[in-house]
Simulated assay, not measured.
Amino acid sequence: MGAFLDKPKMEKLTAHGEGNGLCYGLSSMQGWRVEMEDAHTAVIGLPNGLSNWAFFAVYDGHAGSQVARYCCEHLLEHITSNPDFHTGGPGGGSEGSQAEPSVESVKSGIRTGFLQIDEHMRAMSERKHSADRSGSTAVGIMVSPSHLYFINCGDSRALLSRGGRVHFFTQDHKPSNPLEKERIQNAGGAVMIQRVNGSLAVSRALGDFDYKCVHGKGPTEQLVSPEPEVYEIERSDAEDEFVVLACDGIWDVMTNEELCDYVRSRLELTEDLEAVCNEIVDTCLYKGSRDNMSVVLVCFPGAPKINPEAVKREAELDKYLQNKIEELIKKQGVDSIPDLANVMCVLATESIPNLPPGGDLASKRSVVEEMYNRLNPHQSDSTCGATNWGNVCGSSRL
């Protein structure tokens, strides 16, 4: 939902860090949307004696950014400070104990934290007589020394690459999913055009209080539920490579396998995780994503390392593209140099060797633009700086 700009805002918010044997990078871009509604959290070292733990999350806001922003600042606190996180509920442990929480305690505490922050935001809204109707999905990962806890509420998604392939990914909460649809109907709602009451595209989210006012129903029985699904996976130091957290602006144009393969290919070229994340959002923009885009990449010690052969192949690809662009410009002549859109369309018809898996030609769009501008002595502002090349060339898979 929401209106679009005449041209996308491509400035990025980026960050990176490391600790506890982890490295992370993140990037977010407003893109074609009139407002940036995404937010994120990246924390290495958690409170209450969990300095060797970490937490990362992406929040995809809708109908405003207020809920997403509040969650990025306060959700972790609600999770780690509630008693369930440390005891797993009544009788789950001794009061005041600083022992590392059990798997079931963590899962219980995460669920309680989500329900608490949702109720807290509702109470704040009512006290302020606020007209805020925004909501937000949330996808995250809590990393302990022994486990990975994947957390999902909505249709943002997380995946784990282990042993060179997609090992696990979270399931999107869509209104058309049988169990989600059953809950919606039990609450007196309907699923129309794959949306809650024909309006909201997700069946679980934080906020969205207009969909959480059915009397006689608990918070997890409403039209839209704030309850996350939490999955625990034992860590594998030998095989765990990386985790990707991303909003649906990324997943709209890349499958799990495509993104996993693309990230692996980029990690063989650079250790700069911020740069890898920037390439992901740029590639998704050129693949046709019209939404805000946010991605967090968390790498484990087993992540792919720089590969000299991969670096050589990338250099050969760039040289190949440069030669093709030179040929096109020389062929047309100085007086009729093709614009950048036409250059991309011609390249899309070529069988180009060594294109990044999952990224395809779209992932080289910025490289092609740089080469084109350098080789074209009569460049102008008409090069369609961020055109959706899929639409221009009649294919969304460039």
Rank of each mutant, 00 (worst) to 15 (best):
G89T: 09
S351Y: 15
R162H: 07
T137E: 07
S382E: 12
I193V: 15
S51T: 03
D381Q: 13
A42L: 08
C153P: 00
R162N: 10
G93S: 13
K312V: 13
Y372P: 03
S382R: 13
Y286K: 01
S51F: 00
H120L: 10
E95R: 10
I193Y: 12
L269T: 06
G333I: 11
S351P: 14
V296I: 14
G19F: 06
E11A: 09
R127Q: 05
D282C: 01
Q194S: 14
K12S: 11
L328W: 02
E221F: 00
R162E: 07
K312G: 12
Y70V: 05
N388E: 11
C260M: 12
Y59H: 05
A246L: 03
H215R: 12
N152A: 09
F55H: 09
L245V: 00
M371L: 14
R313A: 03
L321D: 05
M121P: 00
S396T: 15
T283C: 12
D240M: 04
L159D: 12
E37N: 05
G163Q: 04
N391M: 00
Q194K: 13
K330M: 05
V139G: 06
H378I: 06
S105L: 09
G93F: 02
R165S: 14
D118H: 02
R290W: 08
Q194L: 09
E182W: 08
E126W: 02
G2T: 06
N292G: 00
W32V: 06
W32C: 08
E369S: 03
G198C: 15
D318G: 03
Q332A: 07
A42P: 09
T255G: 14
I233H: 12
C299D: 12
P338V: 00
N292Q: 01
Q171D: 10
A310D: 08
N391G: 00
L398C: 07
G164Q: 09
Q332E: 05
A190D: 09
P47E: 14
G154D: 01
W53I: 05
E316M: 02
L200M: 10
A68V: 09
T80D: 01
G89F: 08
G207V: 11
H86L: 10
G109S: 01
L328A: 03
R162Q: 05
